[in-house]
Design a protein around this nucleic acid. Sequence first.
DNA 1: TATTGTTATACTCTATAACTATA
DNA 2: TATAGTTATAGAGTATAACAATA
Lengths: 145, 145
Amino acid sequence: MAKSSRPDLAAMLVPIGRRLMALEQPILDAAGLSMWGYVVLLALGDEPVRTQAALAEMIGADKTRIIADLDELQDRGMITRNPDPDDRRVRLVAITTKGRRTRDRAQTEIQQAEEQLLTALPLADRKAFLRCSQTLAELIRSGDL
Amino acid sequence: MAKSSRPDLAAMLVPIGRRLMALEQPILDAAGLSMWGYVVLLALGDEPVRTQAALAEMIGADKTRIIADLDELQDRGMITRNPDPDDRRVRLVAITTKGRRTRDRAQTEIQQAEEQLLTALPLADRKAFLRCSQTLAELIRSGDL
DNA sequence: TATTGTTATACTCTATAACTATA
DNA sequence: TATAGTTATAGAGTATAACAATA
């Protein structure tokens, strides 16, 4: 059995993912956001989400796992969490103007840093790489891969 | 501040990495290898490694973290760990024929499964994606990114 | 009784610090 | 005393199960 001509894909992508997270960390620190808090703000988009469980599922997390982050986001005025009048068990989670501003500013910085890192790749490849990443990520999120 | 035109790179690559690890797991289970055990066998290549600390560093791990895996690999006859006669503090870690066979067989299966997954991408993009992944992973491992 | 959100418990993984044996 | 390997302790992150409020 011959030795492979390339490393395993996971052995390449996992370290790249770790490096990218490390790159995000100081930006999020400066913005006063935890990694999961940032993910929550991204998932909220601009529309309120009905039920925290649904929000958790959107980001591939357990409903119990995001509660501390929701508490912190709320404390910092990044989100609101109001009981739904129609069913007082559920909370309507919505991003605030401050939350949106903080999130978008952080994301701009993060993507600038990412682009900087991607200059290590030839331009044509870079575009293909982003396209492929997006395709695979979407297929995986939808459960098709 | 406008909404970004693409998801963050980390938000795409980390889930892809997770999916690829999940894809490896049953193959490694069948081979009787832990994830780190497999990584160790890959790092060993075909040459013995002098000192476990060096081996750990090759895979970005702490020397204390791989000991349980080395124990298990040795128990299963995948590696040998002999004291260096010239300095009896250090261990010469070498892969056995069985270890090499097990590793290569697992890697073949893993890469087949990966290629299967990559068929979701157009052929030209797929090649660019692998090329980019390899470039970035190498730059990161060497500390240049 | 079922469901949403919450809290509490246990388990895994990792990092740090002590320990041993050689040098 | 310094270094390679090992073991022990503690911390972070996560998953599971139990709980309170509402339906």
